[in-house]
Simulated assay, not measured.
Amino acid sequence: MKNVTMISRRSFLKAAMAASAVSALAFTGCGGSASSTVAASSTASSAAASAAAEGGQTFKVGIVNYVDHASLNQIVESVESRLDELGAEKGVTFDYADYYANAQADQSNLNQIGADLVGDGVDVIVAVATPTAATMLAAVEDTDIPVVYSAVTDPAAAGFDGEENITGTSDALNTEAIMNLITAVNPDIDTIGLLYDLSQDASTQAIADAKAFCDANGIKYIEKNGTTTAEVQMAAEALIASGVKAVFTPTDNTVMTAELSIYETFTEAGVQHYTGADSFALNGAFVGYGVDYVQLGEATADMVAEILCDSKTTADLPYQTFDNGIVTINTETCEALGLDLDTVKEAFKPYCTEIVEVTTAENFS
């Protein structure tokens, strides 16, 4: 893949291994479609990768991240870690380090990344988030390169369900459960804020479900939107000014990117921020609920290995959904809001299977 400095974090390592040396390796291990030769300009992704390749096959795995933020980074790290484990188990190499790119939420970047990966002849593309998956699917249209997505909230609405050459994992949110968390702590609440990016497909169904919940329970809602961190900050301030005491955000990439910039604003105003992923809470939000993104990434990597090593097709692997029912409470934020942690946990118990306590961290794995 071409070196696009703005979007790639790939390690460009020593070019000590010529393509002829790589192609001469005896291929053992799992079968399936793989790259048996490497262009002369290619380099090994790492010393460990080249050593592993001596015992088996090497697969080119493109990994495309939509934007740099905690939730999606967590998925990428989990995919990579699991691929390393599976490679060791199966005696093969999954070369992802040479084929990773981050689009930084820019569609033109996504288009270029897709074209580059197809040009590189990757064996599979892992697409993180809905816009990424849609663009990668378009990029591989005239090829047999499969796309395995991760963190696509509504695959059917995105048009992926039943589409050839694509499958993956969904982080669909149980919106009713998280709305129940809000009313469990605030039984007399009369208005809930909804903070999201209108352009984020991942938010569409969850926001519709949140509105339906409010309507059914006689609760008013106030919507505020933003497409950039600055706009999200202004939207958060507008919700505070409107007097809401609780705000709901689904698995929205834009708000997740802004969470470190807004959580203190909410906390200082006494506003509880309930969100659709544990990573929001790790970045300061009061509560995160839903899918374990480490588990999501591992399941995504497992699907990649099944396609490359077990001769499975995307048609053989229906997309997976998860209902972890895990509540993540930021204990620092809970205290700053003047809430008693034990009381909150007791109120949450009927609506989840597990409660996890965290503190704020800018980066985590």
Rank of each mutant, 00 (worst) to 15 (best):
N102C: 13
L239C: 00
V61W: 09
V255P: 03
E335K: 15
D68W: 01
K312Q: 08
D190N: 11
A88Y: 07
G29N: 02
F248W: 04
D342G: 10
G119L: 06
S41G: 11
I262N: 10
V147W: 08
T360A: 06
V122P: 05
S46A: 11
S108A: 14
Y196N: 03
M303W: 00
N363L: 11
P318D: 09
G159H: 04
T314Y: 05
N111S: 15
T169H: 04
E85G: 03
A103F: 14
A39R: 08
G226M: 06
L83P: 02
D292F: 07
T343K: 14
T257E: 09
A336W: 07
A202R: 06
M256K: 08
V76T: 11
G193S: 04
A156Y: 04
T343Q: 14
E298K: 14
N330Q: 03
D123N: 14
A24S: 11
N324W: 00
D142N: 15
T93P: 00
A105V: 06
K345S: 06
D197L: 00
A230W: 03
S35E: 07
A53P: 01
T175V: 12
M17Q: 07
Q200A: 15
K245T: 12
I262A: 10
G290Y: 04
E354T: 09
A158S: 12
E335V: 06
A70Q: 11
A49M: 10
C309D: 01
A26F: 06
V79W: 10
V92Y: 12
T328A: 03
V140K: 11
K349S: 08
T313V: 02
L308W: 02
A246P: 00
K245G: 06
K90F: 06
S78F: 14
D310E: 15
E362N: 12
G159D: 03
V67F: 14
A97L: 09
K220F: 06
G32M: 02
Y289S: 04
L86Q: 10
F59K: 07
A19I: 01
D209M: 09
M6E: 15
A48F: 11
Y196A: 00
V344L: 11
E237D: 12
A70P: 02
T328S: 09
E346P: 00
A21M: 06
T251N: 15
K345M: 13
A158N: 04
V79I: 15
T331K: 09
V271I: 11
V356C: 01
Q233K: 12
E259P: 00
D197F: 12
R9F: 13
V38D: 00
I125D: 01
G31P: 05
V140P: 02
F27C: 03
T267V: 13
P131G: 14
I329W: 04
D144Y: 10
A177G: 02
T93F: 12
A47T: 13
D188Y: 02
T249Y: 08
F280N: 00
T169L: 13
Y66N: 08
L13S: 09
V247F: 10
D197V: 00
V148P: 07
Q200E: 15
F94G: 01
V22H: 14
A127R: 11
A158T: 05
